[in-house]
């Protein structure tokens, strides 16, 4: 990591550690900021780096949310033991879901894959809404966080900070490995990749499972942070979380490591600031935003910055040697 990046990371880490204590009334919002970063980074692994845009990553989030809540409900353990067990199981269940569906639909190209994932994401919500074991339409309520009123927000601020940092560091490393190169090759020319003998399906499924794992854990955590899980508005919230995952990564600049982080920050902070003014029109505005980005700004903030100042934001120079 070069000096600029390291400084930025340290600064963000410091801010992430101090902010929940300094602004204790806003711990929920801060926690959600890191959730957004995870949303964007996990979407981008397949969306930006492999060129497989998914509309249904929220499926893994929902699977994780429900898995964690069910374990917390049925395991009969103390809060934190059950929580960590639940989070682990959530990640694993989500990853398994990704493997199962990935093997089925990752052979579909581009737009077909996107629409298939849309179907899966929504179907997940519909099934959860009708399944009595997980509370059907009423959803589930995880056990109450033990502690004072503000403690829950504080705890999850740090939990999600740690998770986001882990995702960032891990993904950054992965993108430099053969695996990362393979994803990029798939994005640039999948036919060539196959003709060169790359195990394209293996890499795509692996990528999706890694993303799903972290999304699952995030789902379990968010369920506890909010205090309840509802099939349509929390767990399989396709029209909010599901769309945001895509939007933030593209807004920030897909296919990079800082783009999704940037997009998450911009989107979340803007949303928090203007939420009270827009209220119900928020979702209408989101539709408008997607259309505007697709039409005028598909390269995202980082892509735009690279075009304008190529030297500063990751230039590729010709050697003199």
């Amino acid at each position: 990591m070069n000096r600029k990046e390291t400084t930025l990371c340290v600064a963000l880490l410091a801010a992430g550690l101090i902010a929940p204590v300094a602004f204790s009334a806003y711990t929920s919002q801060i926690a959600f900021l890191w959730v957004m970063v995870i949303f964007a980074l996990t979407w981008d692994m397949l969306g930006g780096h492999a060129g497989y845009n998914s509309f249904g990553n929220v499926l893994f989030f929902g699977v994780g949310a429900y898995t964690c809540a069910v374990i917390q409900r049925d395991a009969g353990l103390s809060y934190f033991t059950a929580l960590f067990l639940g989070l682990g199981a959530a990640g694993v269940m989500a990853a398994v879901t990704a493997v199962v569906f990935g093997l089925a639909i990752l052979d579909l190209r581009g737009h077909y894959f996107a629409i298939a994932t849309l179907g899966l994401g929504i179907a997940g919500g519909e099934i959860a809404a009708g399944w009595r074991y997980v509370g059907a339409g009423s959803g589930l309520v995880p056990p109450l966080y033990p502690g004072q009123l503000g403690d829950r927000g504080l705890f999850f601020s740090y939990l999600f900070l740690a998770l986001a940092a882990a995702v960032f560091v891990l993904f950054r490393r992965l993108y430099r490995t053969q695996f990362g190169l393979a994803l990029h090759a798939i994005r640039d020319n999948e036919d060539k990749a196959e003709a060169m003998g790359l195990h394209t399906t293996r890499y795509k499924v692996t990528g999706w499972s890694i993303s799903a794992f972290f999304l699952g854990i995030t789902g379990g955590g968010v369920g506890n942070l909010i205090g309840f899980i509802d099939p349509h508005d929390v767990a399989f919230a396709g029209s909010t979380y599901g769309v945001w995952m895509l939007l933030m990564a593209i807004l920030g600049g897909k296919g990079t490591i800082w783009g999704p982080v940037l997009g998450a920050f911009v989107f979340h902070i803007t949303q928090e600031l203007f939420w009270t003014y827009l209220l119900g029109w928020q979702r209408v505005a989101m539709g408008v935003l997607i259309v505007l980005i697709v039409m005028f700004f598909p390269q995202g903030i980082l892509g735009w910055a690279r075009e304008r100042w190529p030297q500063r934001f990751g230039a590729t120079v010709e050697d003199r040697s």
């Binding site: 845009n53 737009h111 996107a114 629409i115 029209s239 769309v243 029109w281 209408v284 997607i290 697709v294």
Partner: peptide, 22 residues
């Protein structure tokens, strides 16, 4: 690319649905 049209019309769909809901 066809995905771009999928994304653009997806956004339009959200816009319309939420508008009518409002």
């Amino acid at each position: 690319d066809m995905f771009i049209s999928v994304l653009a019309t997806f956004g339009l769909g959200i816009l319309l649905a939420q508008l009518i809901n409002q």
